[in-house]
Design a protein around this nucleic acid. Structure first.
Length: 190
DNA sequence: GCTTACCACGATG
DNA sequence: CATCGTGGTAAGC
């Protein structure tokens, strides 16, 4: 089995973590108020020897993660390990990566773009292995409420609040639980 | 293999 | 508020 690196960092009361394969790149990212919950979530579905020794790549990934959490510009690109991602999920992730910072789109619009259905897109977004790196927080319901967000594989009110904060730090204006329609971005392309 | 139940949805009434 | 259609997934045979 392959050797993996698990690295975590605390920032502003929140724990951030990454699981990285030196060979193929970032397998998963996550964040949580609880360090143990974070590590447990990152370890799920991984069979392999886990090292806690930070690497340049893990340091870099955590730097980026905190930057993205703060709504700042990312300064480098992280390799993503697509190995355990279905073709459909990959398609959805690619569309999410096209959403500009400070904008949002809806599950249904992504579905139209890829000739699928909103619920199917919802399950794919929910299973995003790389929150923050792949900006699943920019996908919201068609009525432009903030919508749901899961952390550590589970939905929570905390997750929804985090999603709202992420969007606002990226410049999305939200009044009375409703996102400004100026922020709506319609996916482009074939 | 096939069937079913479950969803971070959307449209309708 | 309720209901239904929907597509992908995983768990169950």
């Amino acid at each position: 089995m392959e050797k993996l690196t698990l690295a975590t960092r605390e920032h502003d009361g929140t724990w951030f973590g990454v699981l990285i394969s030196g060979r193929s790149g970032l397998i998963a990212s996550s964040f949580s108020k609880s360090k143990v919950a974070l590590e447990r979530h990152l370890r799920t579905d991984t069979s392999g020897t886990i090292s806690r020794d930070p690497t340049r790549e893990s340091d870099n990934a955590l730097d980026q993660m905190v930057n993205l959490y703060e709504g700042k510009k990312s300064t480098s690109t992280i390799r993503l390990d697509w190995g355990s991602v279905s073709e459909f999920q990959k398609n959805v992730c690619e569309r999410m990566r096209e959403i500009p910072k400070g904008r949002v789109t809806s599950y249904g619009l992504i579905a139209q773009r890829i000739n699928s259905g909103p619920r199917a897109v919802g399950t794919a977004v929910a299973r995003n292995p790389w929150p923050l790196f792949v900006p699943c927080h920019r996908v919201v319901p068609a009525d432009l409420e903030v919508g749901n967000y899961s952390i550590g594989g589970a939905l929570s009110d905390y997750g929804c609040e985090v999603k709202r904060d992420l969007l606002e730090r990226e410049g999305v204006s939200i009044e009375a639980d409703r996102i400004s329609s100026k922020a709506l971005w319609v996916p482009t392309g074939a």
